[in-house]
Simulated assay, not measured.
Amino acid sequence: YREFYQCDADVVGSDSLLNEIELIQMIDEVFNRLGIRTTIKLNNRKVLAGIAELVGEPEKIVDITVAIDKIDKIGLDKVKEELAERGLSAEAIDKITPIITLSGSNEERLAKLSELLAGSETGLKGVEELREVMEGSKQLGLRAELELDVSLARGLNYYTGTIIEVKARDVEIGSITGGGRYDNLTGVFGLPGVSGVGISFGADRIYDVLNTLNLYPADIAGAAKVMFTNFGVAEAAKSLEVIKKLRENGISSEIYPDCAKMKKQMGRADALGIPFVAIIGESELAEGTVTLKDMTSGEQKSLSVDELVKALA
Rank of each mutant, 00 (worst) to 15 (best):
Y158S: 02
G174Q: 06
E82G: 00
V166M: 09
R247S: 02
F201G: 00
V305E: 15
E132I: 06
D8S: 00
R205M: 02
K244N: 14
N230L: 09
D10R: 06
L146G: 04
V166G: 03
P257C: 08
L140P: 01
D294V: 07
P192V: 08
S175T: 14
E248G: 05
I173W: 15
S195K: 04
P275V: 10
A203S: 11
V309S: 10
L117P: 07
Q25L: 00
E91C: 05
C259K: 15
E235S: 09
E128G: 11
A269M: 12
T162M: 06
T39Q: 13
M262E: 09
S304T: 15
C259S: 14
F31R: 02
G141M: 05
V309D: 05
V197Q: 02
E172K: 15
I36W: 03
G187D: 01
G119R: 15
C259G: 10
S151R: 09
G232Y: 06
R131S: 11
S304L: 07
N32I: 02
L54R: 13
I199T: 07
I40F: 05
R181M: 02
E108S: 10
M295N: 05
E299H: 12
K112Y: 02
E284A: 05
A260Y: 02
S283P: 01
K70I: 12
I279L: 13
E287I: 03
K263Y: 05
L48C: 11
G298F: 01
I255C: 13
L272H: 04
D63Y: 06
L83Q: 06
E135F: 06
L272D: 12
V66Q: 07
A92K: 04
E254Y: 04
C259Y: 07
L292C: 05
K78C: 04
G123Q: 09
V150G: 10
T65N: 14
S105H: 04
N43P: 13
E299R: 13
L156C: 11
S252L: 14
A84M: 10
R181L: 04
S16M: 01
L76D: 09
L308V: 13
R131D: 13
K95E: 14
S14H: 03
E82V: 03
A168N: 12
L303S: 11
T65Y: 02
R247F: 09
C259A: 14
N157K: 06
S114W: 07
E287S: 11
A84E: 01
M266S: 01
Y207G: 08
D15I: 05
V242L: 13
A111E: 15
C7D: 03
N106Q: 08
A67Q: 02
M262V: 14
R86L: 01
D15Q: 10
E165F: 08
K125M: 08
K112P: 03
G180A: 03
L148R: 11
K225S: 12
M227H: 11
A223L: 14
E121P: 11
L88R: 10
T162P: 01
K293M: 08
G104F: 04
T296C: 09
L17H: 09
G179D: 02
R45I: 03
D204I: 08
P275I: 11
M266P: 08
E287F: 02
E108H: 07
D149A: 11
G126K: 10
G222R: 08
L76G: 04
S89L: 03
Q265C: 08
L152V: 09
F228V: 13
Q6F: 12
